[in-house]
């Protein structure tokens, strides 16, 4: 199977608007989703990212705070998924519960350089 990186991009401020019940439901949906992926062998790993960050850019290595400048959107976490094709990975991603909160998911195949 091939390996895919799935980046979750969402409004990083929206958690503060969610009620305890909504957050519990969201967690349960994620647990169920990941549980299914583990059972079907499509899950490798995944982790959240802290909203704080720094950006280093350009030849002068310009340092700025935050992963973003204008937009509230940012990458909240990532998964490594296992799938036979980009299409299958995308089909898996379509069930990701973060979509219900308006997230955008980006899928990229990891090129296994070591195997060549």
């Amino acid at each position: 199977m091939k390996e895919f990186l799935m980046l979750i991009r969402e409004d990083l401020g929206q958690y503060s608007q969610m009620t305890p019940e909504e957050m519990q439901k969201d967690i349960e949906q994620h647990m169920e989703w990941v549980g299914k992926l583990v059972a079907s062998g499509n899950f490798k790993t995944g982790n959240p990212l802290s909203p704080e960050g720094k950006t280093v850019s350009g030849q002068k290595a310009l340092l700025t705070d935050g992963p973003y400048i204008e937009s509230k959107e940012g990458i909240s976490g990532y998964y490594f998924l296992l799938a036979d094709s980009l299409e299958q990975a995308a089909a898996i991603a379509r069930d990701c519960p973060s979509l219900r909160l308006g997230a955008t998911l980006e899928l990229r195949e990891v090129i296994q350089t070591g195997e060549e």
Binding site: Y15, S16, M18, P20, M23, D26, I27, H30, M31, V34, G46, N47, P48, S76, G77
Partner: peptide
């Protein structure tokens, strides 16, 4: 605290 739980327990 609930947000912390959300971030941790999703993964």
């Amino acid at each position: 605290s609930f947000e912390a739980a959300l971030v941790h327990w999703r993964y």
